[in-house]
């Protein structure tokens, strides 16, 4: 257990050394800059637009970091051959994978917390209303980011960085479209199409379940039971991906 924490802390430190948190400056500038611009441009719904922008930016920045740092977690160690020095120690491969994952999760938590703070400050600065729904939306975004990180890590245990990135981005896009897959399944006349689309719907992650940005920006929350169930779904899927990543990494030769 302790080795997991050590690896996690190391990964976190490595991320900081890679200047990941610099993205926060970019985020803050984008959000505040866009808000100032929008304040001049729009007459109504200015508050809604700031909320939209903020939530979308938090989501985007989180997912981009999750993907592009996530694919490097294992891949970079193998490319630089540093994985040998770790594997030579009494550390299990499972611990290595989990530690790497938790390290990036720590980075992402810090990152999201700062983004949330900047977001709330911007809202406060423009006297936009701050609803509980915004917190709900960001918490679900965080679950989504956890899931995407697990996807990236999973792919990177058996593929190159470039391919892992493409796979993860692909799966991310699919994950946002599966709701429509279900709609097609319900409406389809053909049993085969129905079976295939339904199966695909349950196999691919349904990221839309974690997306309530639209109504959160106008102050409409979702029931807590829904928030909890959707989060549980995201976390279970994440866990399944991590177990999968561990199994594959166990069998891998380098």
């Amino acid at each position: 257990m302790w080795s997991v924490v050590v690896i996690a802390l190391n990964t976190f430190r490595e991320n900081l050394r890679d200047k990941i948190l610099y993205n926060l400056v970019f985020f803050a500038l984008l959000l505040i800059g866009a808000s100032i611009l929008l304040a001049d441009l729009t007459i109504m719904e200015h508050h809604r637009m700031i909320a939209d922008m903020g939530l979308a930016a938090i989501n985007l920045v989180g997912v981009v970091i999750a993907i592009f740092v996530g694919i490097g977690l294992v891949g970079k160690e193998i490319e630089r051959r540093t994985v040998y020095t770790i594997m030579a120690r009494p550390i299990r491969r499972t611990q290595f994978i989990l530690g790497k994952y938790l390290g990036l999760v720590m980075t992402l938590s810090v990152n999201m917390a700062v983004m949330m703070a900047v977001f709330l400050a911007t809202l406060w600065l423009y006297r936009a209303p701050v609803h509980g729904a915004l917190v709900q939306a960001v918490s679900l975004i965080f679950v989504e980011v956890l899931l995407v990180t697990a996807m990236a890590l999973f792919f990177s245990t058996f593929s190159t960085s470039t391919l892992s990135a493409s796979f993860t981005i692909g799966l991310f896009i699919v994950g946002h479209l599966t709701m429509d897959l279900k709609g097609i399944a319900e409406k389809s006349q053909s049993e085969t199409v129905k079976a295939v689309t339904t199966a695909a719907y349950y196999i691919f992650p349904n990221l839309e379940m974690l997306n309530v940005k639209g109504q959160a920006a106008v102050g409409v929350g979702v029931p807590y039971a829904y928030q909890a169930t959707a989060s549980l779904y995201g976390l279970l899927y994440t866990a399944a991906l991590l177990v999968g990543a561990c199994i594959i990494f166990q069998r891998r030769d380098f």
Binding site: M209, V212, P223, Y226, T229, A230, Y233, A239, A240, V243
Partner: peptide, 27 residues
């Protein structure tokens, strides 16, 4: 391990189905 994986996948699907039902209609 495979039992754990199957359990996780099954409960994920279960949670997804539950979340679908709970998702408020206005969403």
């Amino acid at each position: 391990v495979s039992g754990l994986l199957a359990g996780l996948v099954a409960s994920a699907i279960g949670a997804l189905m539950a979340a679908e039902r709970m998702r408020p209609p206005e969403v």
